[in-house]
Amino acid sequence: MAVTGFILFFYVVAHMVGNLKIFFGETAFDSYARWLRAMGSAVLGESGVLWTIRIVLLVSVLLHMTAAIQLARRARAARPSGYRHRPPVQGGYAARTMRWGGVIIALFVIYHVLDLTVGWLNPHGVPEEPFLNVTSGFQQWWVVLIYTVAILALGLHVRHGVWSALRSLGTVRASHGPLARTVALVVAVALTAGYLSVPYAVLFGLVE
């Protein structure tokens, strides 16, 4: 769980950094996308690295989801009947929304791939022109809404996920407890802000 979570996490961070290139204009962004495909082509051929990344990602997502489902099933087996008086959350809110958050993210990614990679759901829909795909999509308020919900879910998920993964890997000494929480929070906020900046920038016409 922690290992796959971290792989996904690193991808999401890298992806966000890439997305921020949109602020440098159409050419910068498109060439970045092209570079993605061209990267390492000498060794692995056109899109070779990209496909490697895709496969790693796909495997990670599948393993991550399998682990999540297993944990959920074990949890349900361990608590077959719930409390009549619904327990108020004592621990953290992010922690209790991991599963729903994960599902939202999964659904979003499917939508997102159909939207921007394949282009079927995109108003512009030309895979070779990612800048226009992105900017035309985010003119629609409802697209922005979907992204907002998903990115907030991602933020919460990462906030607990990063902290939790550190613990699952047993790397956190007692004294670092509060520090780890802060780090996770900062990372999650940065990630959320970074991602959200793009659709809102487009919506409010900062990027055209």
Binding site: M1, Q70, L71, R74, A75, A77, A78, R79, P87, V89, Q90, G91, G92, A95, R96, M98, H160, W163, S164, L166, R167, S168, G170, T171, V172, R173, A174, G177
Partner: peptide
């Protein structure tokens, strides 16, 4: 069940067993 570091446990623990023990 398995632990997903939810932290509800330590909040109710009458003896204040810290979550760090789980990391350990």
């Amino acid at each position: 069940g398995g632990c997903t570091n939810t932290g509800e446990c330590t909040a109710v623990c009458p003896k204040g067993i810290p979550l760090a023990d789980i990391a350990q």
